[in-house]
Amino acid sequence: MVYFINDIITGALIGLLYSLVAMGFVVIYRASKVFNFAQGELVIIGGFIVWFTTMQAGLSLWLSIPLSLVLAGLVGYAIERIFLTKLIGESVFSMVMVTVGLLILLRGLVLLVFGPAVRPFPIIFPLKPLFLGDMLIPMNLLIGGIITIVAAVGLSWFFNRTRSGLRMTAVAEDHVVASSMGISVKGSIAVAWVLGAILSTIGAMIFLSGKSLTFLASDIGFAALPVALFAGLESIGGLILAGVIIGIVQSLTTNYLDPLIGGSLGSVVPYIIMLAILLIRPTGLFGWRTIERV
């Protein structure tokens, strides 16, 4: 029984990591209506920045973590400036397609700059797990979970309560209307990408702490995708609930169902949950149900 509860807790924490990566999707969508397919690549780039500042430049963690976040933000800003600014005014569809090209390009760039070798990732969070009686809770996931919840609360407040957050929400509603009301679509999208890159870097730290780094790590983007859709692409708070649910179901599937069937149902179960929920609620649990007008 204790192990069962432990599996639930670990699952929920892994789910929160998915939420954090999914938050990258949602923030960019929320502020620009662009679905970023290259989110997993942003995670690797964040990972490589952290790796570079610690393992290569030899900075201490206290210095390298803030520096990495700043650098990641700059990368996000640069991507937005180089690739997306020029497309404002074009259809959202073509902006989304740019992110597909970005996916291929960023993969190549990572390979070019850092090479394809498997690299050790710095130990950012203590390796020793938290012991709760018989239960083991991985420290990186626990601290990561707390960070995720703090980030979700903070970003929800930003988007729903502050002036600049509401502006960005207006941009997501309609680019043309927003800019005709004097809101800078450009600025909004830039902020979104900076935030998205920073969130991805934090995600990389939690995900990879003490593990290894290759471009396989970008798979987390597609693991987090069902969480974003399950919650609804506009909802930041909903991500927490969606992540926890998907994480728990996945953990129980891998630990109790997979040994029975001798396969890896755990890796597809998030997609099955996502499909089921979308058929019941087409815009996820908390997504906006927009009324379309012609």
């Binding site: 432990n6 670990t10 991985p138 396989l216 790590a217 798979d219 953990s251 891998t254 396969g263």
Partner: peptide, 11 residues
Amino acid sequence: YTEVQPTDLTG
């Protein structure tokens, strides 16, 4: 069975 880049294998 796990992913090629596993999230966590403690359990």
